[in-house]
Amino acid sequence: MNGYIVGQQVINGLVLGAIYGLIAVGYTMVYGIMGMINFAHGDIYMISAYLAAIFLALLTGAGVQSVPVALVLVLALTILFTAFYGWTVERVAYRPLRNSNRLAPLISAIGVSLILQNYVRISQGARNQGIPALIEGHVRVNAADGVTIGQVTYTQILIVSAALLSMGALAWIMRHTTLGRSCRATQQDRVMAELLGINTDHIIATVFIMGAAMAAVAGLLVTLNYGSFDFFIGFVVGIKAFTAAVLGGIGSLPGAMLGGVILGLCESLFSGFVNTDYKDVFAFAVLILVLVVRPSGLLGHPEVEKV
């Protein structure tokens, strides 16, 4: 086995994992607070990729030449609009179902997922879309003996640092602000939080917005790194990000990041050394394995059944 290839796969895996982690945050937060899988979250991520490409094209068309300025503007606009989509989805499809049976919000979520996918397919066309490579160049990573074990593009560095930064910001919000405290309270006991004067509807909407914002960061970063996307990318990535959330322990923010990184690494190494065609099968096998062996995930608490 070649040290260079291993190193390269590890680097690719870390980058992939950072992206999975960012999307997994949205799943884990919504699951923590509402106990439901937001099936539309993968499609929110897909929408953000389209939004990023559109805003980038608009800014370029408007004559913005500087890459950093364009990136910051695109990031801000993408986050804004994606969060808006997240809020709308919650408001239209989940809030009316707050007190209905368990199945209704899930089916509604699948409905939303279909709506988003097909809305994009109809309005943007079914073919692959892309953006030009914006950031060129890479650095070599050398081992202690001077042998090159891999190379990291600047885009990848940007991805990992942006992911860490936004995760850090989110963690800070959850830990140190009133909003974060309200979120955690609602997550533990929604009825009690409501009795204490927390507007839980507002909190749930905020959670959707924050999840969507993280997905927007992921969408922009993925677009920068891989350059191409279509209206169906949210599907498989959504399943994988959910796997990451389960792996790390559903409901746990650091767990989502950890799960993302582990899944990204495993997948990257698997596709590097075993088979690329079956890397999705592998991720799915990881999901089943985690559910069988340790359903509470790495950092999650075992769920105590309320009888």
Partner: peptide, 14 residues
């Protein structure tokens, strides 16, 4: 077609 199915699912559930 699929767009309409998605909408129908949401509307039916609500």
């Amino acid at each position: 077609r699929v767009l309409v199915f998605g909408m129908a699912m949401v509307v039916m559930m609500i």
